[in-house]
Design a protein around this nucleic acid. Structure first.
Length: 487
DNA sequence: CTATGGCACGGATT
DNA sequence: AATCCGTGCCATAG
């Protein structure tokens, strides 16, 4: 009942196709972007063609015909989600999330024509000695896409035959320029710089420094209890500090989504601040359908260059084989790309149906479901679902970006229920009592498990909670990632 | 004695 | 096959 809109799943034809599809499926939109970029650069058979905008809503249109959003076409009869794939210019410039909401002007660096190096250089040029300009340029162009400096300072100094301290001086100036923290060598350093700069203008929790210096890994993993121990404060306080850091600092200075609570895992360098899928509402009506968009990182449509296809026939004999290969490679990529998007669309479409309440009304409404169950519904292998879900993020209609894996969090709704209960309690309830209350509400959970949930949410045990303040729990509009649940 | 956290085991999930 | 998660049992703190 869910596929009337979409064509049936395309099946991979060859093993190469299969392998390629699987790799692409597990890639983030951003990783995909990188892959396609290199592919475009090396394979003349591939071509990127321009696309047009919808004049009224500014969406990019994937094909000719009316805009699927504005001029509501078929498929809206029964409030089923409709689906279309729309490429957006996500990664083509540093301002990143070029989306409707959030970007309130100032912190998205306005001059989009400028790349990051130019932008920063412009700011610091006045305070630089003439002879340091070259050095600054060298540093700025060595930054990775997150705005971090991966090249050791020593190496730069050697390369330019200058002293380390001079390099450090310039880096220090760079770090204080607009995206504050750029040019740091690690996310940690970036955070420290940001915190320091921030502390000049407003009050910051003094323990934040220590938390960053010594508890980075704990921060990343949301292990507030451990963090609390390290800092010698209550888990609640620790969580507050972590929240402060998450809300005000950005470990990857060049990324757009400033102040998203969601912390990326440190190992990944992918763009966690960009969603891979966007779910939005068609309009503000109560029963408005959910629209699922798979982010295609390119601002156009990828296809095989027809001229190249023609040219192959007339290729010089020594080249024909190579050209032929290019052609095949290109068409494989395009096919697999379609396949990838198709799979994700089908997956998200189903999720959108299933989790409509969750998407619109928040954590407590999450329907527990597993990747495995979706796999049978969609008639694909479970590993396919796993690949499609892993490392990916979804932007909800309210603008929040959550990891896709959150849709499969088995205990989220119960945890939020626990939060609720504790928020409304008149006296500190013991775990056993909470467990009972949950049972009444239909959640059968062992007492021990309630304790676990508490610890995950960073809530103190009953005897350490005082009834007066209901502030143990503040409602996160949507909690950031589902952190690894560890005590 | 009660409420909790730690450890560890088994079943489910990935 | 590797991991994650809920739970039971036990030690400990209050």
């Amino acid at each position: 009942m869910l596929n009337q809109i979409q064509a049936p799943a395309l099946r991979p034809q060859t093993t190469a196709h299969l392998a390629q599809t699987m790799t692409l499926l597990s890639l983030t939109a951003f990783e995909l972007y990188q892959k396609i970029e290199t592919e475009l650069a090396t394979n003349p058979a591939l071509e990127l063609i321009e696309e047009r905008f919808c004049p009224s809503c500014q969406r990019r249109l994937a094909s000719s015909g009316p805009c699927p959003v504005c001029s509501q076409p078929r498929g809206l009869l029964n409030s089923e989600p409709i689906v279309f794939v729309s490429p957006r210019e996500y990664f083509s410039n540093y301002s990143g999330n070029g989306l409707d909401q959030t970007d309130q002007g100032e912190d998205d660096y306005t001059a989009k024509e400028d790349d990051l190096p130019t932008y920063v250089l412009r700011q610091i040029a006045p305070e630089l000695e003439q002879e340091d300009h070259l050095l600054a340029v060298h540093i700025l162009t060595s930054l990775n896409e997150d705005g971090l400096l991966e090249v050791p300072i020593l190496e730069i100094a050697r390369f330019l035959h200058i002293s380390i301290s001079r390099v450090e001086d310039v880096i220090c100036k760079i770090q204080r320029a607009d995206p504050v923290g750029v040019g740091s060598q690690t996310p940690q350093e970036a955070l420290l710089v940001q915190l320091e700069v921030l502390s000049e203008s407003e009050h910051v929790p003094h323990l934040a420094f220590k938390a960053i210096e010594q508890g980075m890994d704990l921060l990343y993993r949301h292990q507030y209890n451990e963090l609390a121990r390290l800092l010698g404060v209550s888990p609640r306080k620790a969580k507050e500090i972590a929240q402060f850091i998450g809300n005000n600092l950005n470990p990857y200075p060049a990324r757009a989504h400033w102040g998203d609570v969601y912390q990326p895992t440190p190992s990944e360098t992918g763009a966690y601040f960009h969603p891979d899928v966007i779910i939005s509402r068609l309009n503000n009506l109560e029963d408005s359908p959910l629209v699922v968009e798979v982010i295609s990182p390119l601002a156009g449509k990828l296809r095989i260059n027809p001229l190249f296809r023609e040219a192959v026939h007339e290729a010089p004999t020594e080249k024909t084989e190579q050209w032929q290969e290019h052609l095949e490679r290109a068409s494989l990529l395009v096919k697999c790309l379609q396949q990838r998007n198709h799979t994700i669309v089908r997956l998200m479409q189903r999720i959108a149906q299933l989790q409509r309440n969750f998407i619109l009304m928040g954590d407590s409404r999450l329907e527990p479901s597993t990747r495995a169950s979706l796999a049978v519904e969609l008639d694909v292998h479970e590993s396919t679902i796993s690949r499609a879900v892993s490392n990916k993020t979804v932007q909800l209609p309210n603008g929040r970006i959550i990891p896709m894996a959150k849709f499969f969090d088995r205990s989220l709704h119960i945890r939020t229920e626990v939060l609720q209960i504790i928020a409304h309690e008149t006296r500190p309830l013991t775990d056993t009592e909470i467990a009972k209350m949950l049972k009444v509400k239909g959640f059968k959970v062992a007492r021990r498990t309630v304790a676990k949930y508490r610890s995950i949410e960073g809530i103190m045990p009953a005897h350490l909670r005082s009834k007066s303040n209901g502030n143990h729990v503040y409602k996160h509009p949507i909690r950031g990632g589902t952190p690894p649940h560890q005590p």
